[in-house]
């Protein structure tokens, strides 16, 4: 259990539990998000990654426990970069820009427009006519154009071809404000590991939060290998240097 500190937090979850139709999914989850951190949430299918993000966003209420958001002045607490499948398919980029402007006071429309133009995403085409990659980048552009202290992204690399994944990774690193944090659900740990400061592993209804630097120094393995070991799919071998670690926070 992480030691309680008085350090500044953006999000704190304590003893959070959530069930769907009386089937427990998350039990007694503890999670701390500090400013300027990138956290990866990893887990098997159905482990509760999306649920955890939605609890952090306030889209779901925990059945037990508390979720606290600590908001610096001038920022909104959370910006949820929605999976494209959850955005209305009939809306065009122009519609979504107007929608965000109407409902989110912190939305920076000019930044979003600039992002869409620089990425070459057409604004007049409905979402269902965009490619998967374009839809993801549109969603991320909208989400990152809000002035938030915590950004949430649900599997931003899924359904994206390898060449585009690099663009998405660079996009996240480039446009996320320095003091803000990013909580990202992902299956692609190997590709994102160099970006991550912390790893949150969801397994058997619980969560374990650990610094990626600790994984490297203590076990000498990659975050992906550590995750596989923690979930019973492999054993980390101490002293073995992990592959593909690269420099943190920069594209290898």
């Amino acid at each position: 259990m992480r030691e309680e500190t008085k350090e500044r937090l953006l999000l704190r979850m304590r003893q959070v539990s959530f069930s769907y139709d009386r089937k427990p999914l998350l039990r007694q989850i503890h999670l701390d998000v500090r400013p300027g951190r990138i956290l990866g949430v990893a887990g098997g299918n159905g482990a509760g990654k999306t649920t955890l993000l939605k609890l952090a966003a306030g889209l779901l209420l925990p059945q037990e426990g508390t979720v606290e958001r600590f908001v610096p002045e001038g920022l909104c607490p959370v910006s949820y970069c929605m999976p494209p499948g959850e955005l209305p398919g009939w809306m065009t980029g122009r519609d979504l820009l107007a929608y965000y402007r109407h409902f989110f006071q912190d939305f920076r429309r000019q930044q979003a427009e600039g992002l869409l133009d620089s990425l070459g995403i057409p604004r007049n085409r409905p979402l269902y006519r965009l490619s998967s990659g374009q839809a993801v980048l549109l969603s991320l552009s909208l989400g990152l154009s809000r002035q938030a202290c915590l950004y949430l992204a649900d599997e931003p690399l899924s359904h994206i071809e390898p060449a585009l994944r690099r663009d998405v990774r660079r996009f996240l690193l480039r446009y996320m404000p320095e003091e803000s944090s990013l909580l990202m659900a992902t299956h692609q740990l190997g590709e994102l590991e160099y970006m991550l400061d912390e790893l949150v592993i969801l397994h058997r209804h619980t969560a374990r939060q650990i610094e990626t630097e600790s994984i490297r120094s203590q076990y000498g393995v990659s975050a992906e290998d550590y995750f596989l070991a923690e979930t019973g799919r492999g054993k980390p071998e101490a002293g073995t240097s992990g592959e593909g670690q690269g420099e943190r926070r920069e594209e290898p």
Binding site: L59, Y80, E86, P88, Y99, F103
Partner: peptide, 10 residues
Amino acid sequence: RRSLEQLTGV
């Protein structure tokens, strides 16, 4: 519930 409508806070 549609998530986008929920996020608006209306």
